[in-house]
Amino acid sequence: MSLLRLSSITADYGGLQALRGISLHANEGEITALLGANGAGKSTILNVICGVVPPRSGQVIFDEENITGLAPERLVQKGLTQVPEGRQVFGELSVRDNLLLGAYSRLHRGDRSQVHQDLEEICRLFPVLREASSRRAGTLSGGEQQMLAIGRALMSAPRLLLLDEPSSGLAPMAMAEVFRKIEALRELGTTILLVEQNVSAALQIADRGYVLEVGQMVLEGSCDELLSNRDVRRAYLGKDYEEV
């Protein structure tokens, strides 16, 4: 059953047509990977879903509801939250305040006790955030900041989490740790749409994947299918013709 469905999305970015008729879906409880090179349009897709970039045509359906063009803060309330590329934590605020701001709309509605329970749970999932609770977020390492960015998004209690390049700028150890956490989130029942340049790492944890090239979907399938696809192996996994 698909929680998110995009049909025939076209969108412009910086005067260019960045997306040409994109259709995709993300199944409930799965990790769906959106793969492709830099500039293929992956982030633009996320920004269309999140209401940051209005599409020129097409529809975004979330949980059987048309959410095309809704503002980001409305989408967060509906259970759709993005972890932006480059982490974008609030560096001058404490780790704890960053997490609480993730629950801004829930706290605004007066959901206090549930939010504090979730804070506990997220600190269990990311123990490093509990230890650093009162530190300024800007003083964390890159990997810790990525955990914080994910934790902050989880504080909105999302049903669908959009992850934009969670591995970017991270050392291999930190990256492996982040990907383990993403898998753990799926076990907890969160549906995930994962945008990644690191194709092999993404395909190792994802259930299904899409490959995007210059604004168009060129491939779609289960991760096993994609991993064994000749073009994917050659273009994204660095295999030679002989190995393929």
Partner: peptide, 24 residues
């Protein structure tokens, strides 16, 4: 206050503040 922290978050990074659900 939550509203005060949200305003600081806006000043630090408006795009990220929107994405966490703060109404600009």
């Amino acid at each position: 206050t939550l509203a005060g922290k949200a305003m600081r978050a806006c000043a630090i990074n408006r795009a990220a503040a929107r994405l966490v659900g703060i109404s600009i």
